[in-house]
């Protein structure tokens, strides 16, 4: 895929990335701070993540004063704003000043970055992951299903464009159908996940969940995430 430029100092290559979209309800920094504090566990998944700020709900608001503050809050909380979308021309100008890219994309709600109803063309799965995936590690099966024979430990992350099968405990995060395939599913021998997501719809889990520690299958039932025991 990589195309060699004439000089060796530069190499262009393509890549498809999954970005989290933060859809702001207002440009007032205070409620943002407050919500972050209240939901720090759930928003903790944004630690270290590149994010896109969606201004669809802030069309009427003047931005030049507030945007820098919002960016600062996000950076302090450990995420990296990389771009904005659904901005008015005035908002775009302010974002340009801050070095944020303009991203075009489908309208979306904060919980889901969809919709790509079709199952994409998948290539056969790579050989299974044999070793535990450890805290801080991440594995993405691009254009594939993912099979993992060992554990996905807390703090580790597995992603796949297709299904995810984990034959050990799932203690970290698993995101299936990351390109928007709503038919993707997650199967695991022991559900102790920090987070599960399908086609951008995500859910955090805790030990109170009735299927905690059990074999489970996770799929989308409409807009809702369904978690069922694996055995019938």
């Amino acid at each position: 895929m990589a195309r060699q430029a004439d000089s060796n100092s530069l190499r262009l290559s393509g890549g498809v990335f999954t970005l989290t979209v933060l859809r702001l309800q207002s440009l007032d920094p205070d409620p943002l701070e407050q919500q972050w504090q209240e939901q720090s566990a759930a928003l903790g998944i944004l630690q270290g993540a590149p994010v896109v700020i969606d201004l669809a709900d802030c069309k009427e608001q003047e931005i030049s004063q507030e945007l820098p503050k919002i960016i600062q809050i996000l950076r302090q909380r450990g995420c990296t704003p990389v771009g904005i979308r659904n901005a008015t021309p005035a908002q775009q100008a302010a974002a340009d000043q801050l070095g944020l890219a303009q991203l075009r994309g489908m309208e979306s709600s904060p919980q889901s970055m969809k919709k790509n109803h079709q199952r994409p063309e998948l290539t056969p799965a790579s050989p299974p992951l044999e070793h535990p995936l450890r805290s801080g590690q991440r594995h993405y099966a691009r254009g594939q299903d993912l099979i993992c024979l060992a554990t996905v430990n807390a703090g580790a992350e597995v992603l796949a464009d297709g299904h995810i099968h984990i034959y050990g405990p799932l203690r970290g995060r698993a995101l299936a159908g990351v390109q928007g395939d709503e038919t993707a599913q997650i199967f695991c021998q022991r559900l102790e996940a920090e987070l599960i997501a399908i086609a951008g719809i995500y859910q955090t889990l805790d030990p109170q969940h009735p299927l905690w520690g059990r074999a489970a299958r996770i799929f989308l039932d409409g807009e809702q995430m369904a978690i069922m025991p694996l055995e019938k």
Binding site: P132, L133, R134, S135, G136, Q137, N153, A154, G155, A156
Partner: peptide, 9 residues
Amino acid sequence: RDSDRILGI
């Protein structure tokens, strides 16, 4: 958790 991290590294 930190040991897990270092094992990954």
